[in-house]
Structures are given as structure tokens and as C-alpha cells.
């Protein structure tokens, strides 16, 4: 869970809230590479950013109009270090081990960072997912599972059919007992 929040922190601190629907790509400049390297080396009590988080960040940097300056990169790295230091100081090995207040603090950092760069962090409590959007509602980061469900589930239909069959049998038996079927 910490990996998620930390990844979100870094994601929202891309200080270029650019609206795009299908913008041309640009390369990774030195400052963005510096940021990516900082992400890769970040380690909080053994937790590190996973590949899919790093990839999403790199893909975001490739979008045209997203060009991080040296000053912005330093600021983002400072926030990253703050998040890592804070989590490390708690001694926790997972987000679940944090107190509610500690979790709130981390989340506050994320939301404050989002406000600075015009990005919005949405936490889907039902699915326990973080999504990051630009001001125009473009999704730039999601921590949804890598491997999705790609098959149909007929279990509800089977259960429903079994229940209906039982009810039908019960109805027939009841009707017969009550003499409803007699003319």
C-alpha cells in the first residue's frame, strides 16, 4: 500500500498539468531521467517502486508538453525523500501497520502535491485503487492490477437457475398439496 501512495505522490508531482487526449510524444529530458532514477533508487523499509509504476511515469514524461525543469525535478525529489523518510521513521513495514493519523499524513502530502500541479488524486475506496487525473480529467496513473480478469463468469447464472428450479419444484409440490391444481 505504501508503494501505491508513494507512487501517487511522485505521479502527482509531475509539475506539468498538461491536458491531452492524443498528444504527440516527446523524449525524456535529463531532468525527467533524473526523476526516474530517483524513483528507481527510492527505498522505504524495503519497499521500492515496482516496474509498472515506473513505466507509467516514464510514459507520462514522453507525452508532448510534459517537460520537467531542473528546479521542478529537485522539488519533486525533495517530496519523494520526505515521503520515504516519513515512512521509514514510522518503522512500519507496510501501510497496514501505520496508524490512521500516519496514513492521513501521507495522503495529505499526496493531495497537497496534487493541488500544486493541478492534478487530482482519486481514491476508489470500494476497489482500493488510486487514480491520478489531470485538470481536464485525463487519467495519467492507475495502480490497478497488472493482470486483469478476461473471462466471463457464469456462476451467478448457474446459481440463479438452480434456485429457480428449486422454487419451481417447491411451487408444484405446494400447489398440489393445496389442491390448487385441481379443477
Amino acid at each position: 500500500m505504501f508503494k501505491r501512495i508513494a507512487a501517487v505522490i511522485m505521479s502527482v508531482l509531475m509539475i506539468s498539468a498538461v491536458a491531452f487526449s492524443a498528444s504527440a510524444a516527446s523524449g525524456i529530458n535529463d531532468n525527467e531521467q533524473k526523476l526516474i532514477d530517483a524513483y528507481k533508487s527510492a527505498n522505504a523499509n524495503g519497499f521500492t517502486f515496482n516496474d509498472y509504476t515506473l513505466n507509467q511515469i516514464e510514459i507520462y514524461f514522453m507525452r508532448d508538453g510534459v517537460d520537467i525543469t531542473a528546479e521542478q525535478a529537485d522539488q519533486v525529489i525533495a517530496y519523494l525523500n520526505e515521503a520515504v523518510s516519513y515512512f521509514s521513521s514510522t518503522g512500519a513495514s507496510s501501510l497496514d501497520a501505520l496508524s490512521t493519523q500516519q496514513k492521513q499524513h501521507l495522503l495529505e502530502v499526496v493531495r497537497n502535491g496534487a493541488a500544486v500541479v493541478g492534478l487530482t488524486v482519486n481514491y476508489d475506496a470500494a476497489n482500493k485503487l488510486f487514480h491520478v487525473y489531470t485538470a481536464d480529467g485525463e487519467l495519467v496513473f492507475s495502480d490497478a492490477a497488472v493482470i486483469k480478469t478476461t473471462g466471463a463468469d457464469y456462476t451467478p447464472a448457474i446459481i440463479t437457475f438452480a434456485v429457480v428450479l428449486m422454487l419451481a419444484c417447491a411451487a408444484v409440490v405446494t400447489a398440489k398439496k393445496k389442491g390448487l391444481m385441481q379443477r
Binding site: 492524443a22 498528444s23 504527440a24 510524444a25 523524449g27 510514459i59 514522453m62 507525452r63 492507475s142
Partner: peptide
């Protein structure tokens, strides 16, 4: 790379 459009979700 400038000829490539990075699509949205």
C-alpha cells in the same frame, strides 16, 4: 517520436 501520438486511456 514527434510523429507518435501517445493515446489517452
Amino acid at each position: 517520436i514527434s510523429e507518435v501520438q501517445i493515446p489517452s486511456f
